[in-house]
Nucleic acid binder design. Structure first.
Lengths: 206, 206
DNA sequence: CGATATACGCTACGACTCGTAGCGAAAGAG
DNA sequence: CTCTTTCGCTACGAGTCGTAGCGTATATCG
């Protein structure tokens, strides 16, 4: 379904233009931010006319959402064999994602817009937040099968544990990368993981 | 120093206008977001002329920074007699403040703009982030006098501890309230405090 | 009291951006 | 060849930022 049955008659769209425009949007977003980004500038960077942008996306907001969504389709998670390694991998992944200036500006601009647009907020949560939560769930499950963490006594506690761990990891990394503005060095990741490991078993046990 | 010795001659500024303008800014920011907020609209809401805004703040950015900073000055650190109670109280305060839509939109819009504007980023850190560290400092001092935490072995370690604690608390609460969009229930606050208390003494001890 | 100095509201302005409309030309389908 | 769609280009109306000028209101100083 949703077969992209493009128009069968007429001049076809430039297939390369979409990627070039979205890349130019992310580039401009990194340099100028949401407010400083202009459609004319994006068009010039992509080497197309401004009217071409509006022919493919109805507004500046929609264009930026599409540009960020395309960027966030790369997220994955690996089982590294130990709880510490998995946590450090998750933290490093967050940090790497947030170290790109274009992602910083794009994500925060999206979050800001989402605070007053419930539809956009829902889309951000489903496309960005929940997938990251699955990383925590997978890591916990792997640690439990390895015997590093006790099995969940009940489903409710497990869900709460996932939420609190995710909020702490994501929140702290985001705060450090975006607010403090300091990079997540290997030393910092290791120290934060140590800090996180101490109470983890307690919470997991319930 | 920095005695705000205002001009001694000439018509004095309307003392009520500052508060009205900042309140109008937060209100407009909640309804329209950063991009939708206009200086003319803020002036109309506050019942002043647009030129009055520019007479008191040099730009839209600075006005929003001041509006958000004023909002966050409401936070206070209460001495409730135990470290756990103090932490839970300040987390609850912070969460309650961030549950207001106007604060959500304001903070996120500000952070988003700050990712591209180093000067604005610096202003945000100085006017909003750094002043809130006083809560951590006060809470730690109270806990130390009560004997719940050891005294600082050296100033450098104490400063690092304050930074880490603040980053974790602020980052986690902000993330949960603004990004995940879930309320900070009493259960969540209690669980997060437990998570925070375990490594706290280690860090404080150095 | 008058002179001085500042804040105020109002209007207008230049520069810039959004998003749209119209034009001729290009590129494919039937 | 004809029809349809996309393309780049130019121009436009509406709206915003931040500034300047003007007359007026309200304070301090001599």
């Amino acid at each position: 379904m949703t077969a992209p049955s493009g128009p069968r008659k007429g001049r076809p769209r430039n297939a390369d233009a979409d990627g070039a425009i979205l890349a130019a949007t992310r580039e401009a977003l990194a340099e100028l931010g949401w407010g400083g980004l202009t459609m004319g500038d994006v068009a010039a960077r992509a080497g197309v006319a401004k009217t071409t942008l509006y022919r493919r996306w109805p507004s500046k907001n929609e264009l930026v959402v599409a540009a960020v969504a395309e960027q966030l389709d790369e997220l994955e998670m690996a089982d590294l064999g130990s709880l510490r390694a998995d946590i450090e991998a998750v933290v490093a992944q967050f940090a790497a994602l947030l170290s790109a200036p274009e992602t910083q500006a794009a994500l925060l601009a999206l979050f800001a817009e989402a605070t007053r647009d419930p539809l956009l907020r829902k889309r951000v949560r489903e496309s960005i937040i929940e997938p990251q939560k699955r990383l925590v769930i997978a890591g916990r499950a792997a640690a439990q099968t390895r015997g590093e963490l006790p099995m969940d006594s009940c489903e409710e506690m497990a869900s709460a544990a996932v939420d609190i761990i995710f909020d702490t990891v994501a929140g702290t990394v985001v705060h450090r990368m975006l607010v403090s503005g300091e990079p997540a060095t290997a030393e910092w990741i290791s120290a934060f993981t140590t800090l996180l490991l101490a109470p983890l078993t307690e919470i997991a046990a319930g």
